[in-house]
């Protein structure tokens, strides 16, 4: 029996008291590779922010295993590409959890950074100014930073947007490698075929949970159709959600069990 890495208990996240993730229950066990799927505005990024703790729940709780180091690659990066930094400077930020504010970056740390660049296929890029990188190269650099962070829990929010096929293949291989090392990896993905082929588990969101289980069983046409119907509804003056309301009309299948 694995331990829980993330536990959602009746978790509601949102903005201005409008829920973006509504009454989510479930457990992500350590070592899981989980794809998070859903349309635009279905709460995927919000869920990521809730897990990392950047967004306080409107209700319920999201608990992450206390010892877990988290690496988070946001969808809307606030990275300033015009900042005078070289690739090695950006990747070295990933040393923060180990070295913190004042710890010296030693020879071994520099080696770690170089190895990470090699692993993402950017050998020889360490002195490149970051404003000369292409979109795909930058994404590889950010993956190298995640590598350097050496985290137990890795959250990647739409890492394959506007990335060419070759780069996606390389990055997916890296993600599988992390999975193989026993890390817990959550990835927001839009490409359903990519999920079916590469991800053991998937979680389908439409502001509330539609299905969660083995990827092929979760991404069935019926579930996808239900997700599409559900998540479009938006009402500025929606009534307040009271405890006891039937909010579980999405089928919560829990963790490993398949959807019938």
């Amino acid at each position: 029996m694995n331990d829980a890495c993330i536990t959602f208990s009746n978790l509601t996240l949102g903005y201005d008291s409008h829920p973006a993730v509504h009454h989510l229950d479930g457990v992500v066990e350590k070592g899981t590779l989980l794809a998070i799927v859903g349309g635009n505005g279905s709460g995927k990024s919000t869920l990521m922010k809730g897990i990392i703790g950047m967004l306080r729940p409107l209700g319920g709780a999201c608990t992450v295993a206390p010892d877990a180091r988290i690496a988070y690659l946001p969808q809307q990066s606030e990275l300033d590409r015009s900042f005078p930094a070289q690739v090695r400077d950006l990747v070295s930020l990933g040393l923060w959890p180990k070295r913190g504010l004042l710890g010296r970056h030693g020879a071994q740390d520099r080696e770690t950074v170089l190895n990470a660049l090699r692993a993402v296929g950017l050998d020889g890029f360490k002195r490149r100014p970051i404003d000369t990188l292409s979109g795909g190269q930058l994404q590889r650099v950010l993956f190298a930073r995640v590598l350097v962070q050496d985290a137990e829990l890795i959250l990647l929010d739409e890492p394959f947007n506007a990335i060419d096929a070759k780069t996606v293949t390389d990055l997916v291989a890296l993600i599988k490698h992390w999975h193989g090392e026993g890390r817990t990896v959550l990835v927001v993905v839009h490409d359903l075929d990519l999920v079916r082929e590469n991800f053991p588990q998937a979680l389908l969101l439409a502001r509330r949970l539609i299905a969660w289980g083995a990827a092929r069983d979760t991404l069935t046409p019926e579930n996808l159709l239900r997700a599409r119907r559900l998540h479009e509804a938006w009402d500025e003056n929606a009534p307040w959600c009271a405890p006891g309301d039937d909010v579980h009309d999405g089928v919560c299948v829990g963790r490993q069990e398949a959807v019938q």
């Binding site: 950047m54 990066s77 300033d80």
Partner: peptide
């Protein structure tokens, strides 16, 4: 350079 990253660590 990357304020969101700093917030995450």
């Amino acid at each position: 350079l990357d304020p969101l990253f700093l917030r995450s660590v």
